[in-house]
Simulated assay, not measured.
Amino acid sequence: MTAPRPAAVVLAARHTGHADPAGRIGASCRSALHGTYSVGLTLAVDAALAQRVSLCAVGPLAAQGEALQINLGEGPCVQALSRRVQVLADDLDDPEVTREWPFYAHDAKAHHIRAVFALPVLNGSDPARQAGLVLCLYRHRPGPISDADLHTAQDHADAADLLLLAAPLPGEDDLATAWLLPVDATVHQAIGMISYRHSLTGSQALALLRAHAHARQMDLTALAHAIVHEGLTLPDAPPSGPTDAL
């Protein structure tokens, strides 16, 4: 991460010490933008979002926009992390814009998302395992984002990263738990069970789980719960879906 602009430092200072810092940053970003957007903030351990925490979803489009990227393992957030660049997808009907994540584009449009702008704050040197924060803006109409809104959003993304870096270690303070939330354990249990049953690597098992969730139009966590707690067994062959997103 390069040195944050002064505006990001001011924003971080404004929200330091408060409960739900991610939610506060997301709400602050949404209110500061000139256009109408929903705001999502994700902390990812790897570029495929296999290990991630959705930190906030502010506005009517954000929760579904964030969930789709996590469920499918593809989308602007994944591309922003793996390519280490901002992804400004101003029209999800444009195949040139969405060619790297067609399943996400199709499902996002079904939920009235027509443009997505993903702004990463990157940490680490390996693009394949790139980790960091990503702030995503979701909009119900196509069209480019203004330079002013882009700068405002990036300042809020940088401020979120500063707040995360300043958070105490788990156990030191309740504030830490507002950031360092556990990744859903049921999903990882399901991945382990699929890996054992089908003799797959962890990445292959996650891809199979995502493909079946997409084919069944289920949330990833709901399908994982059915596997772990209800005895559901997946077929060996994956359905047609985003199994190569990893």
Rank of each mutant, 00 (worst) to 15 (best):
R216E: 14
V134E: 04
L246H: 11
R129P: 00
D91N: 15
V97G: 01
L162G: 07
G35I: 07
L223Y: 02
Q130G: 06
R141K: 10
Q217D: 15
G26H: 05
A115Y: 03
V39C: 08
S240E: 00
P127Y: 07
A8L: 11
A222G: 04
S199W: 12
P142Q: 06
V121T: 13
L175Y: 12
V87G: 00
D20N: 15
S240Y: 00
A157D: 06
A57C: 13
T42D: 10
A62F: 01
A57H: 03
H112M: 10
G75H: 07
D219C: 05
A159E: 07
A226W: 02
D91F: 08
T177S: 14
D184V: 08
F103L: 02
R84D: 07
A27F: 04
Y37T: 02
G26N: 09
R99G: 01
A222E: 15
L150E: 08
L137P: 03
D161R: 12
T2K: 14
I25G: 01
P4N: 10
H112G: 05
Q189D: 15
T152L: 14
H198V: 10
H188C: 02
G75I: 09
R141Q: 12
V228R: 05
Y196C: 08
A148T: 13
R30V: 10
L41S: 07
P120G: 10
L163K: 02
S54E: 14
A166H: 12
H212M: 08
Q154G: 01
V9A: 09
H212A: 00
I113N: 04
A148C: 09
P95I: 12
G59V: 09
E74N: 05
G73I: 05
G23D: 09
A89L: 03
S28W: 00
H111W: 13
I191L: 03
R14P: 00
L135I: 08
F117P: 01
P239H: 01
M193V: 06
L150V: 02
P120V: 07
S38E: 11
A166V: 07
L133C: 11
A160P: 05
A115T: 06
